[in-house]
Nucleic acid binder design. Sequence first.
DNA 1: CTTCACCTGGATACCTCGCA
DNA 2: TGCGAGGTATCCAGGTGAAG
Length: 234
Amino acid sequence: MRFDQPLLEGTLVRRYKRFLADVKLRSGEEITAHCANPGSLLGCAEPGNKVLVSIHEDPRRRFKHQVEIMYSGRTAVGVHTGRRSAVVTEAITQGKIGELAGYATLKREVKAVRDNSIDMMLTGNGLRPCYITVRNVTLAYEGVGYYPDAIAAKGSQDMHVLTDLVREGSRAVIFLVVQRSDVESFRPADHIDADFGLAFRDAVARGVEAMCYRAKVTRKGIELDKKIAVDLGA
DNA sequence: CTTCACCTGGATACCTCGCA
DNA sequence: TGCGAGGTATCCAGGTGAAG
C-alpha cells in the first residue's frame, strides 16, 4: 500500500474527540486533521511528537488532512486503522503469507453468526473456509508489541467468536499487524487487559491460529515485512 | 457492579436509481 | 444493458451513560 502523494510533516499539538488531531505543519500552519484511530494510541499520541499527514482534496471531506503516521521516539507508527485491511489483503493476494495461500477467493467484511468482527474470509480450492480477524498493534516496549492498548470487552468477545468458528469446523485466524519497525515479537497485553490475555490463550489452545506480521511503515507507504513470533508466555 | 447499546467523523463497500 | 452518481449500511474501538 503506497501513499498517493508525499506526506506532510508536522508536530502533534493535541488529540481530542477520538478522531481529531490538531497538527502544526512545518510551514507553521496549524491544521485539524482526521485521525482514523479512536484507540488510546498509548505512547504515540503525545503532544510534541512528529506526525505525517496525507492530503485529500475530496470536497465531501470536512477535514482535508488525514493522520497516517505518528512517531514514538524515532519509530514511525502507522495509526490509520483503515489501512490494515488494504495492507493485509494486498499481502494475501500477492501470496506473501504462506499460511494463507492457496485459496481461490477473498471476501472482506464478512458477517459471522451474530457478530461482525470478522474482517475477511478465504474460501475455495476445496479448503476449509478460513475466517480472519485483523487487529492493529501500535503499542510496544523494548522490542515487544502488545495488544490491546486499552481494556476492551469486545477484544475478548472476538476470541470467543473465533473459537466457535473452529468448533464448527472452519479455520479461524487472529491476524495481528504491527505497524512499527522496532518490534521483534508479540505478546498479549496482560498488564492492560488480563481478560483479553486469558481469552487469547484459550482461543489458541482451542485451535485458533494467531499470526503476527510486522509492517514496514515509511513515508512512501505501508507493507507487510516479516512474520514475528507470538509469545504466549504468561 | 456489570453489561450493553449507542455515540463519534470519515472511509469503504454495496445497493439503487436514472440516464444514455 | 451498462455505466456513473448518489444514498445507505457498516466499520474503526473505546468512552459514556442507561439498563439490568
